[in-house]
Amino acid sequence: MADKQALNATFFAFRKREKAVLLPATLVFAVLAIGMFVGFTALNWQAFVDYMNWAASVSASNATAAANGTPPSMDAMMPPQSVMAIGPAYLLLLLGYYILLASYEAACLRWMIHGETGGLFGLTLGADTWRVYFSYWIWLLLLIVFYIVCAIVAGGAVASVVIGMQGGAEPSASTVIVPLIAGFLMLCALIYFGVRFAPAAATSIARKKFAFFDAWTVSKGRFWGLLGAFVLLFLMFFVFVIAVEVAFVVMVGMSAMGNIGHAEPQSAEEAFRAFATPQYMAGVIAIILAMSVASMMFYVALFGVNARAAALALEEGKITGSSGK
């Protein structure tokens, strides 16, 4: 086993490499994802229109009923068929979207760990994609388990407080502190296990087989390095988000003030008109673009941290490429 190397994972995704693979893969992913959502919206456009009409009619029906002092009409409460059908269709969209996301993550990880590419700008429906996709399901199940554990701990805390109050005892500080400590411990557990299993998809790509739980071996001795990288990336992302939003508010606010002419708007329509300007629309488009780019960079950076951890584990012999540990 090789000596342990420094993680240095925060900006691993943005290191100079021989080919530009991540950018085309990201662009193709973004185009396909937008295409999926646009297609879904187009196919269900009538449902959105029906929903808006239905919401308006429910509101009107409630207002009439309140004015007449009668109960609201049950007929009006029933959403249109197209609205009811959108739920199952949305579930199917999500299934497709997560396959696309898995394909994208697999493409990024394959490139960063093995230097391999292929398919449509790196995106394929190969075995790696399905390994990553199945990792998502394991994450979902782990989340469900976590909620169950939270419920058990909460139940235990409530039961213990009830036991502590037996015999008409006065509430003590411990009846407040114990649930708080239990909540804090659960939060710490969530962070710890989340970080330890974070390189699960990267580990599967590194080992070229489904190896979700080997992420525990990969992250062994690197918890603080990984946590530090994630915290740094989260902080940078949030600072960027806040900066963009402040800039947007200042820019659009000044534009709107200019249109209103420093006077208070007299009606909602007037206030809306003040924002219905080319500057406002340009600002909205700019913020969506900036946030999208930042989000994609954030995602790629997260993939990079996990890829670095898995690649180091391969180098150090903690895990092997095809079989054995």
């Binding site: 554990v149 058990i152 701990v153 139940g155 235990g156 805390a157 039961a159 213990s160 407080v161 036991i163 502590g164 411990s174 009846t175 114990v178 649930p179 239990a182």
Partner: peptide
């Protein structure tokens, strides 16, 4: 007892 009771189910 409260601490034991809270952690016991887990």
């Amino acid at each position: 007892m409260i601490i034991v009771g809270a952690l016991a189910p887990l």
